[in-house]
């Protein structure tokens, strides 16, 4: 199973890199879809059907929303140049340089923390945490829900679900506020 996962991960990385470098934004969105749908196959291989259902539907609707944004805006990628020409003289684009700098710093930090985290993890498919053992042993009697994921999401970890729903609500309010502002100005 790990070789299958490795193949899928390589496919995801290839899709992500292509979506970064594609000149046409529609092909960038399509190759971004490769990442999402490979993630669905990965979830199914790791035996998480709940996550796979959510991921496949959310991925489809996210692609539709991104394409509908693409229709509104431009289709060409407006890449930023490394030098700017003002009145014949060329200057170095500091914004571009700072982007590269922050990307490098963030990458090094992520690698460092990833290294710390992965040394302490148990092997794939084996859990040693106290809470998980408790949930699996007493989940059905405690909540009455056969599906253990729903029992954790809506009973043991109700606060987190409330936060999730609030995040979605706030995102919709932000989008509606921004679009309403623009239409009124025009």
């Amino acid at each position: 199973m790990e070789t299958k996962l490795i193949i899928i991960l390589i496919l995801m990385i290839a899709g992500a890199i292509h979506s970064l470098h594609a000149r046409d934004l529609l092909s960038a969105i399509v190759s971004y879809g490769v990442v999402g749908y490979s993630l669905v196959v990965g979830f199914l291989l790791l035996k998480a059907p709940d996550l796979a259902i959510v991921q496949i539907v959310v991925e489809t609707i996210a692609l539709i929303i991104m394409v509908s944004v693409l229709i509104i805006s431009t289709r060409e990628d407006l890449a930023e140049k490394s030098t700017v020409k003002i009145k014949g003289q060329s200057y170095v684009n500091i914004r571009n340089l700072s982007f590269v700098f922050f990307a490098l710093v963030t990458g090094v930090m992520l690698l460092y923390f990833f290294n710390i985290v992965t040394t302490g993890l148990p092997e794939l498919g084996i859990h040693e945490t106290r809470m998980a053992t408790e949930y699996i042993a007493n989940g059905v009697e405690g909540t009455g829900s056969i599906n253990l994921v729903t029992a954790v999401v809506f009973d043991y970890r109700g606060y987190d679900t409330l936060g999730e729903a609030t995040i979605l609500f706030t995102a919709v309010m932000g989008i509606l506020a921004i679009l309403r502002l623009k239409t009124h100005k025009i």
Binding site: I53, V54, T150
Partner: peptide
């Protein structure tokens, strides 16, 4: 609460 899925997946 019986099969895989739930509020988030079904709502989507």
């Amino acid at each position: 609460h019986l099969t895989p899925g739930g509020g988030f997946a079904g709502g989507t």
